[in-house]
Amino acid sequence: MELFMPEAGLVFWMFVVFVVLFAILAKFAWPVIIKMVDERADLIDKGVEYAEAAKASLENSENQARAILAEANQRQLEILQEAAQMKAQIIEEAKKAAAEEAKKLTDAAAISIEQSRKEAELQFRQEVSQFALTIAENIIRKELAGDTAQAEIVEQLLNELEHKN
């Protein structure tokens, strides 16, 4: 069966041709191709790695930005609060100061009123006593014309004193 008998001539040529093909390709083709294929694989790996790193760093910076923003918001809130507090405090202080001032003024006014009242009272008393004295003098001068009347008055005065005590 010819089909199943390897022909010596063909074996010979196949061997020669295949070895030559192998030599040519191994010398000129495969080193270049394999080197480039490996290099490309490395390049792709590196690219993927780089992209992942970039993505991570992007996420990181986004987070950072968000954190900064949050912090800024917090600060703003704090400042606003502080300002509000300060405002309230200032108003409070001003109110207090005003109240104090007013009190001082009223106190001073009260003192001066009291003083003038006392003075007026004193004056009034002096005047009243003056008047009383004058009246009394006049009355006494008039009354002391009779003895009985004198005695009556003395009696009356004495009774009054007794009642008072």
Binding site: A8, G9, L10, W13, M14, V17, L21, A29, I33
Partner: peptide, 22 residues
């Protein structure tokens, strides 16, 4: 017999085609 038969010629053509591919 180391004649260039049809198969040997085809062999050479195959080699050329392989080189033309690579």
């Amino acid at each position: 017999d180391i004649s260039i038969t049809k198969n040997v010629a085809a062999l050479l053509i195959t080699v050329i085609v392989v080189c033309l591919c690579l």
